[in-house]
Design a protein around this nucleic acid. Sequence first.
RNA 1: GGCGACGUGGCCAAGUGGUAAGGCAGGGGCCUGCAAAGCCCUCAUCCCCGGUUCGAAUCCGGGCGUCGCCUCCA
Length: 498
Amino acid sequence: MTIRLYNTLTRRKEEFEPREEGAVAMYVCGPTVYNHVHIGNARTFLTFDVIRRYLEWRGFDVTYVQNITDIDDKIIARAAEEGSSAEEVARVYTEAFLDAMRELGVAKPTAQPRATETIPEMIEMTERLIEREHAYVVGGDVYFSVRSFAGYGRLSGRDIEEVRSGARVDVDERKSDPLDFALWKAAKPGEPHWPSPWGEGRPGWHLECSVMSEKELGVSFDIHGGASDLIFPHHENEIAQSEAATGQPFARYWLHGGLLQVNAEKMSKSLGNFMLLRDVLDRYPAPVVRLLMLQTHYRSPLDFSLDRLDEARAAYERIETLIRNIRWTRGTTPTMEGRSEEERERLTAAISGAQDSFVAEMDDDFNTAGALGALFELVRAANTFMTASDSALATADLVALSDVEDVLVESLGALGVEIGGARQQGYPPEVVELARELAGYRGDDPAGAVDALLAARAVARTERNWAAADAVRDGLARFGISVEDTAQGARITLAPRS
RNA sequence: GGCGACGUGGCCAAGUGGUAAGGCAGGGGCCUGCAAAGCCCUCAUCCCCGGUUCGAAUCCGGGCGUCGCCUCCA
């Protein structure tokens, strides 16, 4: 089965055929580090992290490159505001970005070049463009001549004449055409600058992606990603620069993620309606944030809110509870009879059905929402299986349930959603006191105390002494330990965290 | 004004020609000493109008509405 993906360049879903069999070269536009990334920025990085992980899971050898723009107008402006230097601003927010990505569970790119470390290559490409008469020097600036590149506008579906008439840009008199954009900017006083054949200056924003992708991935690499607001002009300009400089096609598949919205409006720093990723992660674990994002197709807009995060948390817990229950069941004593052959077969069919659907959905332009749906269907099948009768499970039943667990953990893992992680921080020491009080416990071991409490509760229940039984359950609940009665005995669960 | 995307149950969201996945929430029931977890039932004909077709949420035309890009933007 092949993977199909939607290519912005052709506006169609296409079969994915990497230039080199079994390997994928992809480039994703990274952040400009002038502020903390917000949850909208995070969505894009998450989207491409999932695509990357899935491709790897499908057996591709993925080279994943993401730049960090650490020199730019906005960084300079921010430095002026903070009374700091551009270098310092870039350093602080680069660190913050890397931390946030780590916390979100975004896998490290194969290469993560920074603009300020790629200056010589950018100068080199600019020289190539001047040489090929696609760029010209005015004063200390160098501009790309848009009209010199025939394919301009193909990605964004724009006509050069219309771009021009609709332009709201201030026309820079030094450009020979308003459409042209800067490859190299002469430094103004007090700005960071690097030496170049055209004097001291700094690179234009669009240039770095062309240069870095060529350096790390070569020409005509496989996938170029970014959010949809980068299609024009950023990606259009990248194509123009690279193809004009090399004479070769730039990237083969262009993938663009939908924007995150708040109250049906784009989340952006300029609108001020943003929420920082770090603040969201303070309140919700990374897998929950990821699950929320993955419940919507990556190309669609996604309206973000705390309520929706709560919903995602409930959905996450549904899967987590199942996994916990399966693991607990494995510790029970198997019987000979267990579930019927028919029930077991039904579960086995549900497992392979879920696996097949998961792959089919993901292969179809990374339909994570559909893929998650398939996993939730498996969750239901497993729950049904476990509660089909009161009798204990047979060894074969436990094996089938372990398969369910494996499929869920592995499939979610392919999407970078961690689940079922160890959660053993031990019982709080206070349970010893509770056990002394309610169960006549004499030791000082918390685990032993819990055992004593459960034993006391079991006795109380057979004696129909509900007050005593509930005292144990309520007492443990105060320490975040829940007690659930099942046909196979009491199942205790330690609440997450403290 | 130009280009593009979208409009599916209370909320969110898959599905893009064969009769509506999944999640969350609500109602009813089962299980339970009570609970928890879970299961079952229940809750849509897919913005509107017209057309193509044996058949359309799915294709075409028109309308209404929302969003994005056209300026830095993930």
